[in-house]
Write a protein that binds this DNA or RNA. Structure first.
Lengths: 258, 258
DNA sequence: AAGTTACGTGTCAATACGACACATTATTAT
DNA sequence: ATAATAATGTGTCGTATTGACACGTAACTT
């Protein structure tokens, strides 16, 4: 399906703890939208057989955002991903139940246990990506990187279920203040797709006719001549965001209650 | 003016870096509302003669929020302060220009420079307090702790002006989602006071009659029989928040555009 | 070719909103 | 004392927005 298949796994880097700030990690909730469902990108840990959020550590000369972009590039192949911090997770107990550390131990690899055995604060970020453009890529501690539904019941390590849930809640609260549609949908999309995205994030149904009236009112969408064919039933028109007008409208927030 | 004056400075603790997580600090933007103005609590550094936000470090068995409550208690005398994280400040350069470190050096006191010379990420939190209840108290590195206007032009160290500005912006965005009026105002307050608070946070004037109609619509205020006397002109009624109904209304956000 | 289902567009009553008028009252000025 | 001043309490009115829906249309299925 994707154009490139040639890339090998040679790019997976060995782990060297000495280059990172200790006590601090970051975890990314990477959202995608596919088949009218919200997805999150998860790593399957080699030894624990549990799932974890893509994450990592901060190098000595990096900002938090630069570290996250570096990590996201490795996991998705994408640059300049839309990214927002949303919360620091700081419960001292979260480190003590960290099965990822057990995973590291079980791996038998020469990792710096002085680094891993310490307590970690984890900075939670969420990322919004175009599902179709992502090439999921595992890291040193995982054997698979794959999309899962937001409400998947695969086992998640430590507090990663909580982190996902709080990221989702943040998305809901920021829906009128961040360019969420623009970042999660492909360039061209239909009104039903956009509405379904809103419904998924908000967790409730919206009247399709009123939704269309409200969203068009902001003048942030350009209606294209084309229609989306191939679906069952009447072909919907395609739209695309006007990024300038979208950003401008978001400054004061889309004032609607959906 | 305040009832208690007996407390001495004996409670100021010496500084011992070994009990703290390194690389991580926290800075609190403590908001108060007085004379119809938003205030922030600032520390005057003994040697640098600059101002800094109240802040500190995280002990090994504390959550971030517990650390912040401990620090806020020392600076204000208050327990259980309303507190929200809003951003991690992670620019590597912020540590290199940290005049607070110079302050520590100038102090000639025996502080652990291995601790202070490292890079710090700072977690920004904002706090909302009842101005009248606060007893500003300096710490080990400061000689004064005092209220300043939000837009004060006293010199602020490193990125603390930026942190204050971003806290203010966060307050603006969260006005419909957090119990900001409840936490910043005294128990009983007048409608003009509440409206002025909103105007100050939003940075624009609001029509007093429309404001009253909208805020009363949510049924989160209880109108008292009493009026506030002593001011010039007609005495306004006193109101108080109904915490239960306020919290309930905030769940979906106050839907108004002010 | 008919059936099914989703999409495109429009209507309408109820409500909410912005802008404003007027009466009231506590203090200040004369 | 009395009038002037100024801020508050309360209400109105035309307009815009909203929620709830009806009806026609088009693409695929049978």
């Amino acid at each position: 399906m994707h154009a490139e298949k040639t890339k090998t796994l040679t790019s997976i880097k060995p782990f060297n703890s000495t280059q990172y700030l200790n006590h601090i990690s970051l975890d990314c909730v990477i959202f995608g939208f596919h088949n009218n469902e919200l997805k999150v990108l998860l790593m399957h840990l080699k030894y624990t057989q549990g799932y974890a959020l893509p994450g990592g550590f901060i190098e000595y000369e990096e900002t938090l955002e630069e570290a996250a972009q570096r990590i996201l590039k490795e996991r998705t192949g994408l640059d300049k991903i839309f990214l927002k911090q949303f919360k620091v997770f700081s419960d001292p107990l979260r480190s003590k139940t960290n099965t990822a550390i057990e995973d590291v131990i079980k791996s038998g690899k020469s990792v710096d246990m002085d680094f891993f055995n310490e307590r970690f604060l984890s900075i939670g970020l969420y990322a919004l990506v175009d599902f179709e453009k992502v090439k999921p890529t595992p890291d040193y501690f995982s054997d698979r990187c794959e999309w899962q539904n937001l409400d998947t019941d695969v086992p998640l390590i430590v507090d990663h279920r909580q982190i996902i849930n709080e990221a989702h809640e943040t998305l809901r609260l920021q829906l009128n203040y961040q360019p969420i549609g623009l970042k999660l949908l492909p360039k061209k999309f239909t009104m039903p797709e956009l509405r379904t995205l809103y419904e998924t994030i908000l967790g409730k149904e919206l009247d399709r006719r009123n939704f269309q009236r409200k969203i068009l009112k902001y003048d942030i969408l350009d209606k294209l001549k084309e229609r989306k064919t191939g679906g069952a039933h009447k072909s919907p028109f395609l739209y695309q965001f006007n990024p300038e007008r979208y950003q401008k409208a978001l400054k004061d927030g889309l004032t609607d209650i959906w």
